[in-house]
Design a protein around this nucleic acid. Structure first.
Length: 153
DNA sequence: GCCAACGTTGGC
DNA sequence: GCCAACGTTGGC
């Protein structure tokens, strides 16, 4: 089983959206970055665990955890001309973009702030801090555990 | 709302 | 295939 961190702007889609969704399950779509897409399509598997990161908001940081309930499949939004994620260059035979389905595991009582994550040596090297644009990034088992341990503090 | 960083595009 | 210009992201 692998660990990941997914980034989202909570104004668009935050952990509360997931918490109130049917079966607390939702499609994680709109990924339009190639490196993130490659991770998603090739490496994110069913039952993998995911940290939910809130970006560009008041409380930036990790808001909770999710489980991948369905591995990558073509993102329907890319074929929808009405969608802002529409991509005219993508075809059904050769889809460019992928999405997964996720289910809420745990909403943290407090968002674990970016500041505290950077202050902790075990989490300071999370790939999202090194590579800002990556909205789907791997997390090591050690980093995952370190994040869970920060809850207890 | 600003600005730095970085990914993508497009002309050569 | 390089690289400048442009657009977007994301922290402050």
């Amino acid at each position: 089983m692998n660990y990941w961190i997914f980034k989202s702007e909570p104004d668009e889609f935050g952990i509360d959206h997931l918490a109130t969704a049917k079966k607390q399950t939702a499609r994680w779509d709109g990924i339009r970055n190639y490196q993130a897409r490659n991770n998603l399509r090739d490496n994110v598997k069913q039952h993998d665990r995911v940290l939910f990161y809130h970006s560009s908001c008041k409380q930036i940081g990790i808001a909770g955890t999710m489980e991948v309930v369905k591995a990558a499949y073509p993102d329907p939004a890319q074929f929808d001309a009405e969608s802002k994620y529409y991509d005219a260059k993508s075809t059904a035979d050769n889809p460019r973009w992928y999405c997964v389905d996720v289910r809420l595991l745990e909403k943290y009582p407090e968002v674990i702030s970016t500041k505290s994550l950077k202050a902790n040596p075990a989490t300071a090297d999370l790939s999202i801090f090194k590579q800002g644009r990556l909205s789907i990034a791997p997390v090591s088992a050690k980093q995952w555990k370190a994040v869970q341990d920060m809850l207890a503090d």
